[in-house]
Design a protein around this nucleic acid. Sequence first.
DNA 1: CTCTTAATGAAAAGGTTTTTCAGTAAAGAT
DNA 2: ATCTTTACTGAAAAACCTTTTCATTAAGAG
Lengths: 141, 141
Amino acid sequence: MTEWEQRLAGAGCRITAPRRAVIAVLMNADAPLLPQEILEQAQTVHRKLGLVTVYRTLNLLSELSLVRRVHREDGCHGYLPASAGHRHALICRNCHRAVEFTGHNDLHALIERVEARTGYRVDDHLLQLLGLCPHCQEREG
Amino acid sequence: MTEWEQRLAGAGCRITAPRRAVIAVLMNADAPLLPQEILEQAQTVHRKLGLVTVYRTLNLLSELSLVRRVHREDGCHGYLPASAGHRHALICRNCHRAVEFTGHNDLHALIERVEARTGYRVDDHLLQLLGLCPHCQEREG
DNA sequence: CTCTTAATGAAAAGGTTTTTCAGTAAAGAT
DNA sequence: ATCTTTACTGAAAAACCTTTTCATTAAGAG
């Protein structure tokens, strides 16, 4: 049983073949995957998987903080395996390969300054970086 | 003619009553407005305005950097008047009132560190802060 | 193995955003 | 002021992504 499956079981959820298939795809993803893409890859393992179950499993994994949802410019959402703690995604605009990073320390100063100037109390943030990964830089240059 | 209308005219676009109505609503918005909300407010000025034209005008204003699109957790998009330069939105999770801020200096150090560690070249970023505005803090406390 | 009920898949519904297309009106030319 | 061109508009339909509904299936406790 994988670590993710243990977390599911610990939360009182059943370990089913459809969930195993979705998990297998997501655990090793290195770019944000759309639900439709997850479906197509997972169906090679579990043929009769439906898109609805992909969405339900993604919601479940999000609640357990096992995956992170990233916003795309076109308005739909990709999903990435989430590392522990509050991290952010750096996404290649060409191949969509993503890495995570922590921005906590640098953001802390910024957030304090903004709180002082605006009077707002900040309790959450969304940060995504966009650029070119090393691989795609080579191809371009 | 307002500043926004001059920008439109300068870009070769026609100044029409529907566009004026959308602009009038957005110029003074202090919270991200949904296309549907913009429609309802703008229809008090231009009764036969359609939702399609709201979307088309929002795309136009986005291209001219007169409005900024902010991502909401539910997946749809709100629109805010954009100040000059690269700014970010701080949004109240209760009343949705928003203020803008510049995070350029603080993010610069973070971005350089992430570039050094990952090899990515970062050329854009998305940063939104969420919290409570002073007004809603009072109401809560 | 049996039983309970969580989980599934198909179909339908719900929402937002885009496309299509015939009609309208803005703005430059006359 | 009027004409002419064509960008713009609104309604309807289409195209998405995502959620809900509901009858059926199967996980896992006893």
